[in-house]
């Protein structure tokens, strides 16, 4: 499951008609202490009027003459990052949520950023799982190749027990910095869990394997701030794209790939090898 816009949107919306005056819009916004009003005409959403529009306009004007139109909106099933991309692209503070042509909600930039912060790991300064799913879905939608590397640090629990959690955190930070430096610009990196990282790539399997080996070498060859040997195991999935293998639920497909790669990394640990490539495809959990 990925967090969607529908879970954070405001549903009780106050709207205004396009033939209303700017002064009336200003009064409503001041009374209700809100920064914008969706503009309707014959029950249809036609624009949005914000405090910025009001500040620079004559109060006698019609809302239709100062509103921002056409309105920028997202669907309720859009992810938080899709909403953020739209807000950044159009430099807007509020985004309408529309389903089948009907206005059903609104999200503010403050609320959106607050939610996105929950999906960001402060220690490693890396995004968490949802971000990888979002980028993976984008790759699938655009018809590109998708492969995943699931990296798991070996014996990390022992480091925590022998050196304490403060040093454990230090190692995690160093590993994540290494990965950030090594992961190419067209790939995406996230901290999946405690000592697990995921790299999403648009590469075919062979190139993905090369990258995985490079990352594992970087981890094992680094001179860490505490004198300890760090190695990691990795599992690889995807990289053999066939359209028929993917369902219409791209989120589910990416989650399946993560699952395959994580099971492959477990097999790598069990078999005491650094890298295992997952075969097959797990059926949808639905």
């Amino acid at each position: 499951m990925i967090t969607t816009v529908s879970s954070i949107m405001e549903k009780d919306l106050i709207t205004i008609e396009s033939m209303d005056s700017v002064d009336n819009a200003r009064q409503i916004m001041a009374r209700k202490r809100i920064g914008c009003l969706p503009v309707m005409e014959n029950g249809r959403l036609v624009g949005i009027i914000t405090t910025w529009d009001i500040i620079s306009s004559n109060p006698n004007r019609l809302v239709a003459d100062v509103m921002t139109a056409p309105p920028i909106y997202v669907e309720p099933t859009a992810s938080l990052w899709e909403a953020k991309e739209k807000m950044d692209k159009y430099c807007i503070e509020r985004l309408l949520v529309v389903e089948k042509g009907q206005l059903i909600g609104l999200i503010t930039k403050t609320k959106l950023y607050f939610e996105i912060a929950k999906h960001f790991d402060m220690l490693t300064q890396l995004n968490k799982k949802d971000y990888i799913i979002y980028e993976g879905v984008k790759l699938l939608k655009s018809g590109k190749e998708v492969s995943l590397i699931f990296i798991d640090i070996d014996g990390f629990g022992i480091i925590d027990k022998e050196y304490g959690h403060i040093f454990g955190d230090l190692i995690l930070k160093e590993v994540s910095d290494l990965l950030k430096a090594k992961v190419p610009a067209d790939c995406f990196l996230c901290r999946y869990g405690g000592d697990e990282f995921v790299v999403l790539t648009p590469y075919k399997r062979d190139k993905c394997m090369e990258l995985a080996k490079e990352l594992l070498d970087a981890i094992s060859q680094h001179d860490y701030s505490i004198k300890v040997n760090i190695t990691a195991s990795a599992g690889i999935s995807g990289g053999r794209r066939e359209k028929s293998r993917f369902s219409v639920d791209y989120v589910d497909d990416i989650e399946n790939l993560i699952n395959l790669a994580s099971l492959a990394s477990t097999r790598a640990k069990r078999n005491k090898v650094s890298l295992v490539v997952a075969d097959g495809f797990i059926p949808s959990k639905k």
Partner: peptide, 12 residues
């Protein structure tokens, strides 16, 4: 551009 009457109002 900042007159009390705008394009939409004039049109109507």
């Amino acid at each position: 551009r900042k007159a009390p009457l705008g394009f939409e109002a004039a049109k109507r």
